[in-house]
Nucleic acid binder design. Structure first.
Length: 847
RNA sequence: GCCCAGGUGGUGGAAUGGCAGACACGACGGUCUCAAAAACCGUUGGGGUAACUCCCGUGUGGGUUCGACUCCCACCCUGGGCACCA
C-alpha cells in the first residue's frame, strides 16, 4: 500500500491526472495514514495560535458506530476543520463513557466479562470512526472505565467529601425495579419512568450517597458569560425551580394536648387572611398525632391507598381532589383563627415543608379542594372593576385588585411590595420569615450495580465512615464477580473486596460496595482531555486553564437537566476548591438534531440502527459525510427510511464532477507547452471570478452557522456554474480566474470532504496539506453583479423581469419598468398612483 | 393544561417582508450502446390553453402591507419539554 502511494506521488501531474479516476477507497485510506504519520491532528499545548476547544459529548461504547453517531461526529468535525482553517489551534478529542449498565447486562445474560466486552466494543468503534477521516486527537483519548481514569474520579469524590459536598443519608429515593438500582431525580422522566429502561420507578427509603448540588442552586441559575440555547437554560431554571416566599409557623395541638409549631412554605403570605383550612402530606410525621380516634381507620385507609399509587397516578392533575379530615385544628398566626387540618395527596412531602395553608379563593388547587369538601372560601383580594362573591366563583382569582378582609392590610395593591409588607409583619411578630425554596434535590450518586467507579470509602466500627487515603487510590474494581441482580451490588458477595482494614485505626473494616453514577465520570472528562496521560494528577492546572472553558460543545438536547447541569455543578465546586480558575465549563453549546428511525432516536437501546460501513465502502467516507450534512439543517436531524439513502447518490455524483473538472483542468494546463496563465475573454473571466467570490461569501457564512446543507448546495451551484463556463469556453482552464475558482472550491469543500480535496490539492502541485490553509476571503467588489434582474410588479403581482445594467439611478430604472410592454398591458386603463422601488431588486406599480 | 420548535412539490429541503419550490433525489423523455449499466442533455407544483400566456398554490380562517411562506390574531395537526412545586 505504502509503496504504491509513493510511486503514484512521484508521477508527473499530467500522468496522474490521466490515469486517475475517482477511487475513494484508495485515496481515503492513503490520506488517513499520512495524516496520522504526520500527527497533524494533534493539538499542541504550546502552539502560538489562539486555541479552539471543539468538544463533542463522548459516546457510550454500545458496540457499533451507527449512522446516528456519524451524523453527530461529522457535524462536529466539519466545524473543527473549519475553525482550523480560520487560524485556530483546534483541539478535538475523543473518548468513551465506558461504565454503565449495558456492559453489566451483557455480563449477566451472556456471561461476558464486562471489561473485555466494553474494551472490544471500544476497539470496534474506534476502528469504524477512523474511516470517517476526522481530526480526532487520539493522543488525548479517555476511557472512563480504565483505572488510570477512574482513579481520578475517585479522587474527585474525596475532594467533594472533604469540602462537605458529599454525604450519606437516609432518604426516600427512586428505585428502578428493572435495573435493580436507585436513580437520581434527574434520571426519572416526567411520567415517573426510568430514563434508561422505561420501567415505572418506585419510592424507597434507603441510605445513600448524595452530592450537595442544592448548595449551588443559586449560582447554577447565573449562566454568566455563556452562549447557550435559551431553551436549555430555561429547562435548567425550571429544574432548579427557585421560589421566593415565606415560612409561616402555624400551631397545632396534638391529641396529647401538646402545642407544636408546624411551618408551611408559601409564595403568597399576603393571602394569610384567606386561609380556611390546613393541609398535610400523607407522609407527614404529625398526621398520626393529630388524627382523632374516630377518624383513625379512615385516615389509615387513605394513607395506604396514597402509598400504593404510583407517582404518575398520584401526580396526575386532572383527577378530583381527595383527602381526610384529621379531627384537629391549626391556628393561623396572623389572626388567631382556628382552621381544620386535612390530609391530602396533592401536598408533597418532598417539597417545602410537607404542610400547606389552604387559600381556596386565590389558589386553583385549594379552590377545587374546598369545593369538593364543602369548605368555606374567603376572598382577600377584590378586582377594581367589579366585586366578586365567594359562592359565585368558578375558579380561583390569581393576582388581581386590592387587599380586602385582611385587617390593617386592606386596600394594598396586588404587588411584590405588599408581599414584602406581610413578611415584615410576620418577622416582627416572630411567626414567620422570608424564605427561598428550590425544586432541585441533592444529586443521588450511589448505585447498587457493579460496572461503575468504586466509591473510595470504608466503614469501620470504631471510626465510622472513613475516606480511603489518596495514596491508596485507585480502589480497583475487581473482575471476578458473580452476578445476582437482586438489588445488591455483586461486590458485596466478594469478601476479598469487602473486607479491609480501617485507614485510621487499622482495625477490620468494610468497603463501600455501591458504585458511582456514571454521570460522575462524564462530569469531568473534558478536563482530562487536556492532560490525558498524566499519571501523577487528574490534570495539570496550567493545561486545563489554557484549554477551558470549552469553546464549542456539541451534543444532544436530552442532557439538559442531567449531564449539562452536573458538569456545571462540578466546575463550580472545583472553582471554589481552587482546582480550576473558571466557573462555567462550556462557553458555547449547540444541540445537533438526531437521526430517527421509525420516529425514535437511532440508538442501540431505543431503536433500529443502521451501520455506515457498507455505505462508506460503496461511496467513500467523503460522500457519506457530505450526504449526512446535506440531509437538512444540522440542528434538525433527519428521519431514516429506505428513501433517505437514495440522496447519497446526489452528493456522490457531485464529488465525481468536482474530481473530473479538476483533473480536466490539470490536463488542459499541462497541454499548454508555453506554460503559465493565458488571458480569456474578459467577460468570462469576470463572471467566473464573480461566482467564486459570491460562493466564498455564502459558504463561509454557512459553515460558521452549522448550515452545512446550504453550504453544500452553494458549492454544487458553483460547480455547475464552473462547468458551464468551461463547456462554453475551454480556454478558461488556463486563466488565473479559473485557478482561483478551483482553489476556492477545494478549500471551501475541505471541511466537508477532507480526502478528495487533499488529493486534488496535491495533484495541483501543492506539497502542504490543504487542511491548514487559510479559508479564502471574499472580495466585496468582485462579488457585485454587473447586470441586475429587476422584478416588475403591478399591484404586487409579477408581470415582467428586466435585465438592466447595475448602477442605473432610481428614476432610470422606474422609467425602464414603465416602458415595458407587459407592464403597460397590465396597467391598462388604470392610473399609476404610486411606484415603489426596492433598490436593485424590484419595482411595484400601484394603480 | 402550560412553554418551545415545526407544518412548503412525489421525496429531503431552499427562500425570514420583495421572482415560492434554490440545491439534490425520484420520475419521464432523449444522446451514447447490439443491449444494459454508468455518464451526459432536456422536462418535471396543480389546473386551463394549439400557443402567447392566464388562474390557483407554502396546515386552516381572518388581519396588517403597495407586496406575506415570512409579521399580527384565532384555530387544527406533528415533535419536544414541563406539569398539583404551595
Amino acid at each position: 500500500m505504502t509503496t504504491e502511494v509513493e510511486d503514484d506521488a512521484t508521477k508527473a501531474p499530467q500522468e496522474r491526472a490521466e490515469s486517475n479516476r475517482y477511487t475513494p477507497a484508495e485515496i481515503e485510506s492513503k490520506w488517513q495514514q499520512i495524516w496520522e504519520e504526520r500527527g497533524q491532528n494533534h493539538a499542541d499545548d504550546n502552539d502560538p495560535r489562539p486555541r479552539f476547544y471543539n468538544l463533542v459529548m463522548f459516546p457510550y461504547p454500545s458496540g457499533d458506530l451507527h449512522i446516528g453517531h456519524w451524523y453527530n461526529f461529522v457535524g462536529v468535525d466539519v466545524f473543527g476543520r473549519y475553525q482550523r482553517m480560520n487560524g485556530y489551534n483546534v483541539m478535538q478529542p475523543f473518548g468513551f463513557d465506558a461504565f454503565g449498565l449495558p456492559a453489566e447486562n451483557a455480563a449477566i445474560k451472556r456471561g461476558a466479562n464486562a471489561r473485555a466486552w466494553t474494551l472490544s466494543n471500544i476497539d470496534n468503534m474506534r476502528r469504524q470512526l477512523k474511516t470517517m477521516g476526522g481530526i480526532w486527537d487520539w493522543q488525548r483519548e479517555v476511557v472512563s472505565c480504565l483505572p488510570d481514569y477512574y482513579k481520578w474520579t475517585e479522587w474527585l469524590f474525596l475532594k467533594l467529601y472533604e469540602a462537605g459536598l458529599a454525604y450519606r443519608a437516609k432518604a426516600p429515593v427512586n428505585w428502578c425495579p428493572n435495573d435493580q438500582t436507585v436513580l437520581a431525580n434527574e434520571q426519572v422522566l416526567a411520567d415517573g419512568t426510568c430514563e434508561r429502561c422505561g420501567a415505572v420507578v418506585q419510592k424507597r427509603d434507603l441510605e445513600q450517597w448524595f452530592f450537595r448540588i442544592t448548595k449551588y442552586a443559586d449560582r447554577l441559575l447565573e449562566f454568566k458569560d455563556i452562549e447557550w440555547p435559551e431553551k436549555t437554560m430555561t429547562m435548567q431554571r425550571n429544574w432548579i425551580g427557585r421560589s421566593e416566599g415565606a415560612r409561616v409557623n402555624f400551631t397545632v395541638t396534638g391529641l396529647d394536648g401538646q402545642e407544636e409549631a408546624v411551618p408551611v412554605f408559601t409564595t403568597r403570605p399576603d393571602t394569610l387572611y384567606g386561609v380556611t383550612f390546613f393541609l398535610l402530606a400523607p407522609e407527614h410525621p404529625l398526621v398520626a398525632r393529630l388524627t382523632t380516634p374516630e377518624k383513625k381507620a379512615e385516615m389509615e385507609a387513605y394513607i395506604t391507598k396514597a402509598r400504593a399509587e404510583t407517582e404518575i397516578e398520584r401526580q396526575s392533575t386532572d383527577k378530583t381532589k381527595t383527602g381526610v379530615f384529621t379531627g384537629s385544628y391549626a391556628t393561623n398566626p396572623i389572626n388567631g383563627e382556628k382552621v381544620p387540618v386535612w390530609v391530602t395527596d396533592y401536598v408533597l412531602m418532598g417539597y417545602g415543608t410537607g404542610a400547606v395553608m389552604g387559600v381556596p379563593a386565590h389558589d386553583q388547587r385549594d379552590f377545587e379542594f374546598a369545593r369538593t369538601m364543602g369548605l368555606p372560601i374567603i376572598l382577600v383580594y377584590q378586582p377594581e372593576e367589579q366585586e366578586i362573591k365567594a359562592d359565585e366563583m368558578t375558579e380561583a382569582l390569581v393576582h388581581e385588585g386590592h387587599v380586602v378582609n385582611s385587617g390593617p392590610f386592606n386596600g394594598l395593591p396586588d404587588s411584590p411590595d405588599t408581599v414584602k409588607h406581610f413578611i415584615r409583619y410576620l418577622e416582627e411578630k416572630g411567626v414567620g420569615k422570608a424564605e427561598v425554596t428550590y425544586r432541585i434535590r441533592d444529586w443521588l450518586i450511589s448505585r447498587q450495580r457493579y460496572w461503575g467507579s468504586p466509591i473510595p470509602i470504608v466503614y469501620c466500627d470504631t471510626d465510622g465512615i472513613v475516606p480511603v487515603p489518596e495514596d491508596q487510590l485507585p480502589v480497583i474494581l475487581p473482575e471476578n464477580v458473580n452476578f445476582r441482580p437482586d438489588g445488591v451490588s455483586p461486590l458485596q458477595y466478594l469478601p476479598e473486596f469487602v473486607n479491609t482494614t480501617c485507614p485510621k485505626c487499622g482495625g477490620p473494616a468494610r468497603r463501600e460496595t455501591d458504585t458511582l453514577d456514571t454521570f460522575m465520570c462524564s462530569s469531568w472528562y473534558f478536563l482530562r482531555y487536556c492532560d490525558a496521560q498524566n499519571a501523577e494528577a487528574a490534570w495539570d492546572n496550567a493545561k486545563v486553564n489554557h484549554w477551558l472553558p470549552v469553546d464549542q460543545y456539541t451534543g444532544g438536547p436530552e442532557h439538559a437537566t442531567m449531564h449539562l447541569l452536573y458538569a456545571r455543578f462540578f466546575i463550580k465546586a472545583m472553582y471554589d476548591m481552587g482546582l480550576v480558575d473558571f466557573e462555567e465549563p462550556f462557553r458555547k453549546l449547540f444541540h445537533q438534531g438526531m437521526i430517527r428511525s421509525e420516529g425514535k432516536k437511532m440508538s442501540k437501546s431505543k431503536g433500529k440502527t443502521v451501520a455506515p460501513d457498507r455505505l462508506v465502502q460503496q461511496f467513500g467516507a467523503d460522500a457519506v459525510r457530505c450526504f449526512l450534512m446535506f440531509l437538512g439543517p444540522f440542528d434538525q436531524g433527519a428521519e431514516w427510511n429506505d428513501k433517505t439513502e437514495q440522496l447519497l447518490v446526489g452528493v456522490s455524483r457531485f464529488l465525481n464532477r468536482v474530481w473530473n473538472m479538476m483533473t480536466e483542468t490539470i490536463k488542459a494546463q499541462a497541454d499548454d507547452s508555453a506554460g503559465g496563465a493565458v488571458a480569456v475573454a474578459e467577460d468570462i473571466e469576470r463572471s467566473v471570478r464573480r461566482a467564486t467570490h459570491k460562493t466564498i461569501r455564502r459558504v463561509t457564512d454557512d459553515l460558521g452557522h452549522w448550515a452545512y446543507n446550504t453550504a453544500l448546495s452553494g458549492l454544487m451551484e458553483f460547480s455547475n456554474t464552473m462547468q458551464e463556463a468551461a463547456t462554453s469556453n475551454p480556454a478558461v482552464y488556463r486563466s488565473a480566474a479559473w485557478q482561483e475558482a478551483c482553489e476556492a472550491m477545494l478549500k471551501l469543500l475541505a471541511p466537508l470532504a477532507p480526502h478528495i480535496t487533499e488529493e486534488l490539492w496535491h495533484t495541483f502541485g501543492h506539497t502542504e496539506t490543504i487542511h491548514t490553509q487559510a479559508m479564502p476571503a471574499f472580495d466585496q467588489a468582485l462579488a457585485v453583479d454587473e447586470i441586475i434582474t429587476v422584478i416588475a410588479q403591478v399591484n404586487g403581482k409579477v408581470r415582467d423581469k428586466l435585465e438592466l445594467p447595475a448602477g442605473l439611478d432610481d428614476e432610470a430604472i422606474k422609467a425602464h419598468v414603465l416602458a415595458s410592454p407587459k407592464i403597460a398591458a397590465a396597467i391598462g386603463d388604470g392610473h399609476p398612483k404610486k411606484v415603489i422601488y426596492v433598490p436593485g431588486k424590484l419595482v411595484n406599480v400601484v394603480i
